[in-house]
Amino acid sequence: MLKKILFLALAISLTNCLVLNPAGASLDREKGSEAASRITDAAIQTDLINSVVLTGRGSISIFSLIAPDIAKIESDKYYIKSDVDACVNEIKGFKGYLLGSLITNIISCQDISSDGFITGEPFPVF
């Protein structure tokens, strides 16, 4: 009986990531649409602050609106939340205000990889 309980607990813990990550139920994962929204908000905020400081009036660039596309975020996939947080913090941080949201996005947000059922990390992409 104890062996069955231990086997069941081990099986649940091993398949937990395979079931919960694609469903978006894991705590350290974030849906692509949410990640895209956060990256867009950070880019718009950075552009607004930069434009007010430099010209005295608020404006945003088209690159702020397509920031998730530049970061290669797909809305139907899941991403590691800490990677998305690091990208957003870079865009909102000193580097974002110094270089602008576009260049910071290109430099800091290109290493965000999707986390999926079979083709996500660490499995190869087919």
Rank of each mutant, 00 (worst) to 15 (best):
A43S: 13
D41M: 09
Q45V: 06
Y97W: 00
L20F: 05
D41G: 10
R57Q: 14
S61T: 14
N89V: 10
F7W: 11
F63C: 04
L48P: 00
A23Y: 04
S108A: 14
V19D: 01
G56E: 01
Y78N: 15
A67G: 10
I62M: 14
K72L: 11
V125I: 02
T46K: 00
V84G: 12
G100F: 00
V84N: 14
F94W: 08
V84P: 02
G120C: 00
G93N: 03
L6M: 02
F117I: 00
I12F: 07
G96I: 01
V125M: 00
D85S: 15
N89W: 09
R57M: 13
G32S: 10
L99W: 12
K3C: 11
L6Q: 05
L65E: 14
S64K: 12
P122R: 03
I118V: 09
K31C: 04
A11K: 02
A67R: 05
L98M: 10
L14T: 05
L99E: 14
F117D: 01
L18W: 05
D111E: 14
E121L: 15
V53R: 08
T40V: 03
P122T: 01
I80W: 13
P68S: 09
D85W: 12
K92Y: 07
D28A: 11
R57V: 15
R38V: 01
L48A: 09
Y97C: 05
P124H: 00
I112S: 12
N50C: 13
A25G: 06
D69G: 15
S82A: 15
K72P: 02
N89D: 15
M1R: 09
G93K: 07
D69F: 11
N16A: 08
A25Y: 05
G93T: 06
E74A: 04
I66V: 14
I80G: 07
K81M: 12
P22A: 01
A43R: 03
L65R: 15
I106P: 01
I73K: 00
I103R: 13
R29P: 07
S101C: 01
L27Q: 10
S37K: 13
S64D: 14
T104F: 03
T40S: 14
G32A: 02
F63I: 11
F117L: 07
K31P: 00
G32E: 06
D115A: 11
N105V: 08
T104I: 04
P22C: 06
L8P: 02
S13K: 03
L27A: 14
L10M: 12
L98C: 08
G93E: 09
K31A: 09
C87T: 00
C109T: 02
G116V: 08
E34R: 07
I80M: 12
L10N: 10
F63P: 08
L14K: 01
Y79K: 02
V53F: 05
A42N: 09
S101V: 00
G24P: 07
N16L: 05
G96K: 00
F63K: 15
Y78K: 04
A36V: 01
V125H: 00
A11C: 11
S108C: 09
R38E: 15
I118C: 06
L8H: 07
Y97A: 05
N89I: 11
A9R: 02
V52F: 06
A25D: 07
I70C: 01
S61H: 12
K81W: 05
I12C: 07
T55A: 01
C17N: 07
A86Q: 15
D83T: 01
S26K: 09
A35N: 11
N50T: 05
A71N: 03
